[in-house]
Design a binder for these strands. Structure first.
Lengths: 214, 214, 214, 214
DNA sequence: TATGAATGAGCGTTCATTCAT
DNA sequence: GATGAATGAACGCTCATTCAT
């Protein structure tokens, strides 16, 4: 048990990361203690620190690797999609947004932690390395779009994905206006209901139309 | 002097709230301690708790009252604006967004705290009371828009303001992608620069066009 | 119990400091935990931090205030002693050294912590303030000697007290060479026995003779 | 290769010890972790524990072996020096002190660890064995002095070297009184400057004169 | 013999909250 | 109403040491 292969090490790191991710689905960063992550992972507290230097690093890893994977998957889907028009791209992106929200909502929640909470204590080196990898995938994705539809330049294509996350991230913050702590607020709150999924898609749809033309 | 008038009471509460607001402009919720708020307000720590039952209540108050004031001000401006077309409304709303971002950025930052952080510990009663007041103003604002431009129904008008905040809030989360802890990341990061103001306005502009028609 | 006078506050600070001092007589800095200090003082751990910002500050306080008191007491004794010759001064200083070692040994042990351990985490402000007060007393003491015996300049008089502590501090480090963990080492260890008191006084005596003339 | 010769074993032990020594030149005992020693030695953490049962044993070894080597070297130099008078011995010892401070300052720093820190956790057996070897060299050195200058008895000669280390060790503790964390303290601190080398030699010179005559 | 992953007790420190005055 | 001293649970994190391989 003493010498782990890179693969075994990765697996344990993933165990920790995935435990943290699961917990983050239901709890806030500050309500998740390293102790709890360790317990749920059935390992000792110290072991967590053998794999991540700080608590913030865990969540930064979640954000960076999670987005990398999401964009890589998006890239693959894009390559298979053989888009031929802006309209088809729009459809593709809206479906992609649905996937992001339905299956990767934590990524979007993690965005809100990055600047104010994680960067202060996450390791600069690791973060920048992870970010650069992420940016590479992002650029590749953008280039792929540009290749398919040359009228969309690379910068614009990059921006599309930034705005995609922005919209979803913002709608999370404004969701549940009709309840308090999951319990409904008395009175007719219909006008304040937000559907993260529907409103994100609608907003992103309008955005894409505005950006790329009717 | 033993018995404070309601007015005096309000004044001290405002003092605390405004101090907290100023601190929130530059620091994260978790980096602002009650102790620091008390010191900056030149009052005792215990006094803070005479006016707000919990730390979370302070920031919930900031959010609810801040938005009330912002929407009241918006309402006034709207009443003076004498809009006659959807296009004029759009211009009005974009200018209003600029004001929101330039002068009330903390409101938008507070949105990100509400669900995951504040609701867990804020007093249910006070929050719901504050929220209902806020919703009233919000409704009034929406109705005003509907009165000016009957083609826009009240529910839609309400939604406009929710999306306005959503967009700005989301872009805050995605800003500073080209730096780490305020310091620039090496490499050409042009494609990842976000301007909260410009991108919010662009996105909101496209949204309004999509929603209300070109 | 809520508003303490300066005097009451000082008394609690002293309680903590004296508890720490007592513990330091028998244990090493790293074997004394804040928890233990709090328990022995019959107060809560948090209360300790209301009076000292860091653990290091406690011991820095002990060092600075302890020496201040010792030098003030020495100054008083000196003023009463009416010395008229270098020989009388020597006798005075040797008796003073005896007092230092017999009744203030912790001060000498604290010297060994100062540079390598305390300075790294003690508050700069407080330390420098405490040091400057200490230096003033030190200077006053030196001036007093110069006034009594003008052949001894102030700088030399200051040095005398620095060397006094040095010698005792060094001999502490070299003491107990004939035992291990308080238990005697087998064999005849007579040649390695150190008497902190006797050897300090002998060494200091020789030093003073060399410095001030037979 | 499964069975290491005694020589190979010694070589790895020396590697660890020398790495620790180098680190101790610049860092405090508590700032040097076994992990760091292992890394700097390019061996595994567990390997360190194959050669030293505890962290304290490493530094105890450094102290005992370091002093053995220093005294052996001193002995050799003494045998070559052909001293014929107390004055020549004094000169020899002062030069030896200069060497000790300039080239073996860590030995003196280690003295301060021995009693309060190392003995508590260092292995009794190994320590006593090392100490006895050290005492033998020490005695030999003392006897050599006695043989050269019969007026100096062996006990006195032993003591000379104990006081030599004491003085230097004490002056280390009292050095840097004119700065805080390497930064100068405001104000004229001339009277509180300590030169470990010069003041050690002066003090030791006076001591030797007092002990051995004029 | 060498390894390094796992451990977990223990640390200093923070801070919202209480409550006697 | 105002105060601020007291509290203590909870936190992230360290690190010497163990031991299966």
């Amino acid at each position: 048990m003493n010498i782990k292969t890179a693969d075994e090490k990765q697996r344990k790191q993933s165990l920790i990361a995935e435990t943290a991710l699961k917990m983050f689905e239901e709890n806030d960063f500050y309500d998740i203690s390293i102790n709890a992550i360790a317990q749920k992972s059935h390992i000792a507290k110290g072991t967590v620190f053998n794999y991540f230097k700080t608590k913030e690093n865990i969540f930064m890893h979640l954000l960076l690797v999670g987005y990398q994977e999401f964009f890589l998957q998006t890239l693959k889907q894009l390559q298979q999609a053989k888009l031929t028009s802006v309209d088809e791209l729009k459809s593709f992106l809206l479906a992609n947004t649905k996937d992001l929200i339905e299956n990767h909502l934590t990524l979007i929640k993690l965005n809100a932690l990055r600047g104010p909470i994680l960067e202060g204590k996450a390791s600069r080196e690791e973060t920048i390395e992870g970010r650069q990898k992420l940016y590479e995938v992002h650029e590749e994705l953008a280039k792929c779009i540009h290749d398919l539809l040359p009228s969309i330049d690379v910068k614009t294509a990059n921006k599309i994905f930034i705005i995609q996350s922005s919209i979803a991230s913002g709608l999370i913050n404004l969701s549940n206006l009709d309840s308090f702590n999951q319990e409904p607020i008395p009175g007719n709150m219909d006008d304040f209901k937000v559907s993260i999924l529907n409103d994100s898609i609608e907003t992103f749809d309008f955005y894409l139309t505005g950006l790329l033309g009717k």
